[in-house]
């Protein structure tokens, strides 16, 4: 039985997918009337793959600079340095290249470039009793293009998170104006991610897809996306070990996009039955504790 009480929100973006999809990047920058694109990424994708070098070549004079030191926790210090570099380069468009944390980092860079208040006034607040409060971030943002190296639901969402270096506290931002104007699923870029990263991401995507099948109140728009997201994730899972095969990576990109579309079409980002709620809370907490421990061990060494 369908529920007819729902709200749909649409956000325009262009998606370029396939072999040599990145060749359309210069036209996309031009379409957004940008002349000084700025790449934000991590060290590995920049220094151990050819993706960024290829983008430099493609963009030529359209590229104003590259900041390639966003770390895997999206630390505040790395974001602050990226903002300074983008400002010095007079960036008029930001290109995030990477997986979820870098894509979120690119969003925060555009927020901090534009907003004038202190960071602490921009982040979501969590009162002890009551719902979270995300401050309105009114300033216009630079357009964002996301180039994925791994499937992620972060590809076209508006939320982002960085970690404060001093306190290890997560700082979350929400700004619909940081949704991307374009997304690229390029074969060579997607093949740069190591199988272990893809495997972890695939398991999370599959898990969410299965749990979302338990939704008990669908509006007529979302059921197809939900089922197809699950079919794609389940079909990709057994094939991801083949590091040379881009197909399951594309299918997982599609699954995550459909999961986001379900949410925008009035469904849920994740369905709130008890097993999913507990698993989600535990997993996000484990990531936080585990990463903090790992960094402490690395620092001690």
């Amino acid at each position: 039985m369908y529920s007819y009480d729902f709200r749909v929100t649409g956000y325009p973006f262009r998606l370029y997918s396939g072999k040599d999809a990145l060749n359309s990047l210069p036209d996309e920058v031009e379409r957004n009337r940008a002349r000084r694109a700025f790449i934000v990424c991590g060290r590995t994708v920049s220094r151990k793959t050819t993706v960024v070098a290829r983008m430099r070549q493609l963009l030529g004079e359209q590229l104003a600079g590259v900041f390639d030191e966003i770390d895997k926790d999206t630390t505040r210090s790395s974001i602050v340095r990226a903002v300074a570099a983008a400002r010095a380069a007079q960036a008029d468009l930001v290109i995030g290249v990477g997986a979820g944390t870098v894509i979120q980092g690119a969003r925060i860079v555009t927020i901090l470039l534009a907003e004038k208040r202190p960071v602490e006034e921009l982040v979501t607040q969590y009162p002890e009793h009551g719902p979270a409060i995300s401050p309105k971030l009114p300033e216009p943002k630079l357009p964002i293009i996301n180039v994925l190296t791994a499937p992620t639901t972060a590809q076209n969402r508006a939320g982002s998170r960085m970690k404060d270096d001093a306190t290890a506290r997560g700082m979350e931002f929400f700004d619909p104006k940081t949704r991307p104007v374009a997304i690229f699923w390029d074969t060579d870029a997607l093949l740069t991610a190591p199988p272990q990263l893809i495997r972890t991401g695939a398991a999370a995507i599959y898990c969410r897809a299965v749990m979302n099948l338990g939704a008990t109140s669908d509006n007529p728009l979302v059921e197809g996306d939900r089922l197809q997201a699950w079919r794609l994730a389940a079909g990709a899972l057994p094939r991801i070990a083949n590091a040379a095969d881009p197909a399951p990576r594309f299918e997982l990109c599609a699954a995550t996009l459909l999961q986001n579309r379900e949410s925008d079409d009035g469904g849920s980002q994740f369905v709130r039955h008890w097993p999913m709620r507990a698993a989600y809370a535990f997993s996000t907490s484990l990531i936080s504790v585990f990463r903090t421990s790992a960094r402490a061990r690395a620092t001690a060494r």
């Binding site: 969590y126 719902p131 979270a132 709130r272 709620r277 507990a278 989600y280 809370a281 535990f282 996000t284 907490s285 484990l286 936080s288 504790v289």
Partner: peptide
């Protein structure tokens, strides 16, 4: 881990 989980607004 439990204490952080108890404060997850999205899940709860």
């Amino acid at each position: 881990v439990l204490e952080i989980s108890l404060r997850n607004f999205n899940a709860d």
